[in-house]
Structure formats: C-alpha cells, structure tokens
C-alpha cells in the first residue's frame, strides 16, 4: 500500500487532538453535548527532516472541514466523534524558473477523512477537586491513502489505530476569573506497520468577559516508539517515513455569541519535529454548546 505522506496525516492528527482534547478530563453531563463545525488548514513549503532540521518541499496544502461532537451518554461516559467531512490535499505545480514549463504537474484529491470515534469515562466523581478521565479513541481509516499520479496525496492513513489516554484537570479562579489547567498522557497503538506513539500534553484556559470568551493555550508532544516500518525495513520505498515526532504549541479562542452558540479560531505550530510540516495550521469554526 502506498503511503508517501504520513506526515500529512500527522498534521491532521494535530488538529484532531486539538478537538478531541478540547473537553479535557471533564465528561459531558447526561444528555448534554458540544458540537463544532470547523475548517482547519495548513499550507507548507518546508518540513522537518528526520534529523529535526528544516528542508524545503513542494508547496502542499491540506484543508479539512471537520464535524466534532461530544455527547454525554451518562454523567460519566461521553462519546466523541471527529469526522473530517471534506478533506482536500493538493500539491503545487513545479515549474522551471528558466522556461516556466511545468516539470511536475500539480494535483489534488478530495474525499472524506479518517474518522475518530472516542469514549471518555470520568474516573473521578463529578465535582471532584481534580478531575480524572480515561479515553479510548479509535481511528477509523475512511480517507484516501494514495491519490494522485505519484500516489503521494492522502486524506487518510489507511490504518486502524487505538489510543488510550488519561486526562487530569482542575478548575479554579484567578481574581474571580474562571480558569482551568489540564494535562493528558496516552499511548497510540497503530497498525499497518506504523510506529506506536507516546503522547503527552497540557492546556491552560481562561474565561474572560463573564465567561463569554474562553482563551486557551496548549502544548502537545508526540514521541514515536520507532518500532514501525521505515524505507529500509519495508521492501518498497513508496511507504512514507514512519517515526514522526513533534512538539506543538497552539492557541484557541472561543467566543459565545449566545448562551449556547459561539465561534472559535485557533492556531498551532510545531516547535520541533521530525518528518512533519514546518508551518502553522489554522482553524475557524462555529460551535453549539448544550450546557
């Protein structure tokens, strides 16, 4: 199977994490939910190499229209869905600067992306000082794995992964301003010769303007266990380098326009990485918060 560009999927994972972890360790109450329709994108012309240095690449764009939903099945069990309803991956034309002739024609693919389906269980009782939850996230490969004439365009990685993570969090106030801090750690078990991953991250958020505006910053890290395939261990050079890693920093603002409805905007970038795009990603969206 062709998998030239798993780094692209890693970028998708970045945004998926942004969404999936948005709830922190706090499950939704029974019958309550949070739904978000958002657009996420990145365009990059350089990437981190396996040595962590930055090299150029042909300009590549990835655009995802995501539907994210959390719904409380009980007060302690929340189901989570993240579905890229429309995913577009393209690469620019490569032209001669001397003749302007096309050397490698640009291409694009459009399809649905990989579905993330999750279940969060509150390990701590509702109202506990420190909230703790466990989450299982299943990555269902619905996207396209090898598009374009070079088969280097993707909207999915073609592998079924299972991630178990634990979230910890505490809400508090700073000068009567509501705030929270949370952290998570998890293991992502990947199939199809992908390396397993260790994940860790943290988030701090503040509720401003009488909690109408929530701003947060997140830091996430992915460390590969480097037990998957590489170009050397598989008998095909078409497989994209495995063992991607990154440390990312993100910011997000959520503004409630009414009691339940709001808009959001976010930004994330890799501070360091291996085999991952060296460019920021952006997101905008609208959400419905059934409190």
């Amino acid at each position: 199977m062709k998998k030239y560009t798993k780094y692209i999927l890693l970028l998708m994972v970045l945004t998926i994490q942004t969404n999936v972890f948005a709830g922190g360790p706090w499950p939704q109450n029974k019958g309550k939910g949070y739904f978000k329709l958002s657009e996420w994108w990145t365009v990059f012309d350089q990437h981190y190499t396996d040595l962590g240095k930055i090299d150029p690449n042909l300009t590549t764009g990835i655009f995802n229209t995501n539907l994210y939903a959390e719904y409380g099945l009980t007060n302690r069990i929340t189901t989570i869905v993240n579905m890229p309803l429309f995913s577009r991956n393209y690469m620019n034309n490569l032209r001669s600067a001397t003749t302007s002739e096309i050397i490698i024609p640009g291409e694009s693919i459009n399809s649905v992306g990989d579905l993330d389906l999750g279940f969060k269980y509150g390990l701590s009782k509702p109202g506990a000082k420190i909230a703790v939850s466990a989450t299982l996230i299943l990555g269902i490969p619905l996207g396209q794995t090898a598009g374009g004439s070079l088969e280097n365009l993707q909207t999915g990685d073609g592998e079924f992964n299972q991630m178990v993570q634990f979230d910890f969090g505490k809400s508090f106030q700073i000068n009567n301003i509501p705030a929270y801090i949370s952290a998570f750690t998890g293991i992502n078990n990947r199939t199809n010769e992908f390396s397993e991953e260790f994940r860790i991250g943290g988030e701090i958020g503040l509720g401003l303007m009488d909690s109408k505006l929530w701003v947060n910053t997140r830091i996430n890290a992915v460390e590969s266990l480097k037990n998957g395939a590489t170009a050397e261990t598989v008998n095909s050079t078409s497989i994209f380098a495995n063992n991607t890693e990154y440390l990312s920093l993100g910011f997000e603002a959520n503004l409630y326009l009414s009691k339940n409805i709001g808009i959001s905007a976010g930004f994330a970038t890799a501070l360091r990485g291996e085999i991952i795009a060296a460019a920021p990603s952006y997101s905008v969206g609208v959400f419905l918060d059934l409190k």
């Binding site: 655009f63 032209r95 001669s96 001397t98």
Partner: peptide, 15 residues
C-alpha cells in the same frame, strides 16, 4: 470553507 479550499499554485525551481 469553500472560499479557502486551496487552489493549485506554482512553485519554481532554479534550473
């Protein structure tokens, strides 16, 4: 979303 879905542009190589 429709407006920002990227179009294929041009990169140039100094050849």
């Amino acid at each position: 979303s429709l407006l920002i879905q990227g179009c294929i542009g041009d990169d140039f190589v100094d050849d």
